[in-house]
Amino acid sequence: MEKAVKETDEKLAEEKQPGAAAWEPKIMAFVCNWCTYAGADLAGTSRMEYRPNVRIVKLPCTGRIDPLFIIKAFENGADGVLVSGCHPGDCHYTAGNYHARRRWIGFKSLMEFVGLDMRRLHFSWVSASEAIKWVDLINSITDDIKKLGPFMEYRGLK
């Protein structure tokens, strides 16, 4: 079932933009300074390798993330957006990530309602020591979105 969906998606992507295989998606990541940003740094110091498609915007805490940032990112050409911060209970600011999670739940259902393909929008916890998780996350999101093709629907809003 899942496989069939993926295949259709690939076909659609190919139809939308011939030669889509050469196309590279752009992914915007909003991350917190203390956990995920440090985790991404650790991937670097450990010389791991991952897809070069992600651009990071560093914020003090995921609690600082306004859902509007995500919409703006889509408007400005993001094909996918990732929000990532400290694990529940590990927040540098004690509870910021809980606020982020609560906000995320509401925002996610709104985006589902307006018809966004939720494979384009991800929320994750990556700690300062989880470089491998970061690498896997970026790779899998990039590969998934590559299959979906460019995200054009919100660009006209700009």
């Binding site: 003090p60 306004d66 940032f69 400005n76």
Partner: peptide
Amino acid sequence: CGVCVAACRSKAIDLAGYTDEQVYAAIS
């Protein structure tokens, strides 16, 4: 931490060093 900034409905709060303006400029 900036939790209040995102919580503010009327956009009356901003966080020095991580203002909305700065973030939108980077996204743009």
